[in-house]
Structure formats: C-alpha cells, structure tokens
Design a protein around this nucleic acid. Structure first.
Lengths: 261, 261
DNA sequence: GTCAATATTCTCATTTTATGAGAATAGAAT
DNA sequence: ATTCTATTCTCATAAAATGAGAATATTGAC
C-alpha cells in the first residue's frame, strides 16, 4: 500500500459501528506495522481529519465539519436544493421529509434534507448516508434518467438476470411519467414520491423526493404532492441550468490566480 | 512538498470565494507542475474528496458529506449537543439560535446549531465556520475555562500587550459567574449568552451559546435565558462525563479487530 | 469538416519520501 | 520498583512521488 491510500485506509476503518480506534487496532486491522500507523494517524491529526479522543483512541476530526460547511455553501446542487426543500415541506401541509439525493459511485446519497415540523417518523435516507441504487423512489427517479450506457455499467447485471427486465420496464415507465411513487420499499409504512433533477451539461444526476406516512395519504393528497415534487424539482433544475450557463462563460466562480490574492 | 501535504494543499485552495478550480490554476497557485496537479486531483476525485464540476473545473466532493454524517452520528459532543440545542431553542420562547462550539486549532468552531422557528436574523457563527478566539460570548466562555498554560499558548500575546490584562480580568470574571453575556461583539444588534461545556478528562473544551436580538430582551428574559443556557450546558457536560467514564472501561466504542468483521 | 489551442494523460529517469524492524523512551498499572 | 504497553525515534532500504516533455484527447473557431 502506498502514499495517499494509506490515509484513505485509515479513514475507512471508521464507520457507524466503529467510531473510535486505538492505533494498534488500526495497525492490526490494516495489516501495517505500528510505526507506520502511528505516523499516519499523527499526520491525519495534524490535518484535522482525526483527533485524539481518550486513552489513545482516535475519532474523526473537525476538519470534516469545516469542509462540509464549505461544500454546503458552495456546491450548486446542495445550495440550490436546500432552499427548495424548505419550500417543499412548508407547502406539503403534512408531516413529511424532503430529500435531495444524487449519484455517489454506485450508490445514491442524500445531500440535503429537511423535515416538516411535526414529523414524527424518520426516513432511512438522511444527509450523507449512502443508500441502495435500485430501491426506493429517490433512487429510481435518478436511475430512470441515466444514459443507457451508464445505467448498464452501474447495475452491472447481465440482461438475462432475473429482475433486469422488470427494472428496465419500471424505469421506462418512470421516465414517461416524470416522477416515481413507491410505498414501503425502503421503510415499511412510508411512501416516497420523487422527481428527477437532471442537468446533463453540468453532470448533475439527482432527485428531489418527499417521504410521508403512506396510510395518511388519500389520492387527492398524493396528486398534490406529486405536483409539488415535480415542480420543485424543475425549479432546481432550471436554477442549475441557468447557473451553469452563466458560470461557464463569465462569472468568476472558476478561480484564476488573481482572485485568490 | 511531499506526499500527503500535496493533497492538503489542493484542498486548501478551496474556500468560500473560490469554490471551483481548474487544474492549471491550482498548479500555478500551488507552484507545482501540471502533471503533478492532474495526478493529485485525480487521486482526490477517486477518493470522493473532489469531483468534476464542468469545463475542467473541480469542486469539493461528496465524501465530505459522508464523513460529516458519520461524525455527526458518532462524535460524542456533536451527538449529545444536537439534542440539547433543540431543547434549548424550544424552551427559549423567543427567536434565537443555539450553538455548540469548540476549540479548533487556534480558533473556535461551531459544531452544531439549531434555530428557533421564527428566527429572522442569522448569526455569524454557523456549523463548520472557524471564528475568532477572543471575541463573542461563545469563544470567551471556552477561553475562560482553559488551563493557564494552554490559554497563553493560544492567545500568544506577551503579558505586556495592550488588551492582555483586560482580557485576563474578563475571563476570570466569566469563570466566577459561570457564563458569559455579550452584545454586538460579533454581529451588531445581537446578544450572546454562553456557558462552558468542559470535560477535561475527555479533552472537551466547548461552549453552548444562545444568540438573540439584543433589543428584544428585557432583564427578566435575560436572566431566564442565562439559566436555560447554563443548565443545558451542565446537562451536556454531565452526559459526556458519564459517557466517558463508561466507554473508557467497558463499552466497545473502542474498536477491536473482532467487532469489525 | 479542418485547424489551432488547450487540456489531459503518459513515460521514464531521477529524487524524494515513505516504510518498517527494532531500539529507545514514556506512561500506566500493579 | 517493575512490568507491560503505548508511542516515538533511528536509519538502511524499498517504494513511490516527481516533473520535463512527449503523446494524445478535447475543444472552439472558422
């Protein structure tokens, strides 16, 4: 193993179930000598990506909070989406959670979320948690918009695999309707309504979705929420498209050395 | 420059004002050859810390969102604090923002925040933004609790510097009272009330603070909010202390190789 | 479509740095 | 005091990053 990947390897041992590690345990898990592990950890601590917890244990460091804020402030999708999500949960007039999610490697990850006030349930989708690619309205709304080549690379299944053809047909259906509605696919009892947020020229493949208690929705509400989700998703897409068109020509979001001084 | 620091250097060129960079611009700013810059960026993209934006521009990548969530879920201070902040803004019965902040190198950074519903103003303190060490109730409440040696190292001023003695006296006063109340020190028109969250044995130096419109507070409310902040901060400290005492002996938060399998 | 101008990747000899075994030291528990 | 373990240090060696320039791809202008 080498250079950068050693640092990545150390960061990767941290997860929901293992949030504090001693250096000897990291060394053993990663199969590297203690001296190397101590050095790597020290460098990560200096950079703020790890920090000493107690009794020689280390946990993730505050640099992640700092970079996450920077991303929240500057990422076009997150920035445009956050405002839209607030509007959506306001206008839903029902307990719900609104999510903005995107492709992340071969998974889907929520990058912004907003819950209505009185919402008691919790969605499995939450900001920063990778979720399965082929389940739930949130994911399918994205999948349905992918170019065929990319889709096949992602799901990786041979066309003869069981479930391949049904999925293809479902995605085609979603593409036609312009939205995807599911119930109990991720969380039992919860319904999901999702619409795509696609700006190909900016490389954006995302979806806006609304999660609500399935049993509390009648057909009228369902239609209303679909409309709400679809139009909010369009708004975000438009904003991103507009922003992309302006920034790629004039606006100094693309930095030059001068503007750094 | 070498190894890891090259990656850090690339990440550091990203800031609020410069959120998208072309590789040639990074190379020039950092003073490294293009080939090196392209390689570094490619590695960071592979790791998810950067991602291609458009027209050869790169922005911060989704890995930061993922690690930020992991930290939110597992960091004792953030986790314990988030719940407490919700309670505080609920019980404040006035438009306000509650913050949990901590030392971060030679600055103070908010690691969790929560705004009451009808809050119209915005505090300069926000999750993930480094703030000055010696201004504002939030920072001073932390400073006041630092061991003398650490404090001197942080503020770095010679004891004869103007402002040193007043600051020392103010901090002593805060230590005696157990809280710090200021007005218009960071944001004009806003008042800050902060109480320390200190758990020395766990290396926690933080503060809980409440920001509200100064002109809307009478003396009675002020006293009430001070009480609210002080008691919430105590609750968090207690929880952290308790958690520290248990985890350092038995609980498997400290990972062993077995629990990873 | 051609062509020019950039952007990006590739190659490889060289320099630099990371690596790891083990020694040295520090710290804690008994 | 005395283990035991955690952590840092040392240094010869192996490994990887580096960067100049060539090769290739991409883009935009026309």
């Amino acid at each position: 193993m080498a250079g950068f990947s050693r640092f990545l390897a150390v960061l990767r041992v941290f997860n929901d179930a293992a949030s504090a590690w001693s250096v000897p345990d990291m060394a053993e898990t990663l199969g590297v000598p203690a001296s190397t592990a101590y050095r790597t950890v020290r460098d990560l601590v200096d950079a703020g990506f790890l920090e000493a917890a107690h009794d020689g244990a280390y946990r993730l460091g505050p640099a992640f909070i700092e970079y996450d804020r920077l991303l929240r402030m500057t990422d076009p999708l997150v920035h445009a989406g956050a405002g839209a999500l607030r509007d959506v949960v306001m206008q839903a007039h029902t307990p719900c959670v609104a999510l903005l999610s995107r492709l992340y490697n071969d998974q889907v990850m929520c990058v912004a979320d907003e819950a209505a006030r009185e919402t008691s349930f919790r969605s499995s989708y939450e900001r920063g948690k990778p979720m399965p690619l082929t389940q739930g309205a949130t994911s399918k709304a994205i999948l349905a918009q992918l170019p065929a080549r990319q889709l096949n690379r992602l799901i990786g299944a041979p066309k003869t695999a069981p479930g391949y053809e049904p999925l293809r047909r479902e995605l085609a259906d979603i593409r036609r309707r312009g939205y995807c509605a599911t119930a109990s696919e991720i969380d039992t009892g919860l319904a999901g309504i999702a619409a795509p947020v696609i700006v190909r020229e900016a490389g954006v493949y995302a979806s806006l979705s609304l999660v609500a208690d399935d049993s509390s929705l009648d057909d009228g509400q369902r239609r209303r929420l679909v409309l709400l989700v679809v139009s909010a998703a369009s708004l975000i897409s438009e904003e991103l498209r507009h922003r992309h068109n302006s920034t790629s020509i004039h606006t100094p979001v693309l930095m030059t050395k001068r503007s750094v001084q």
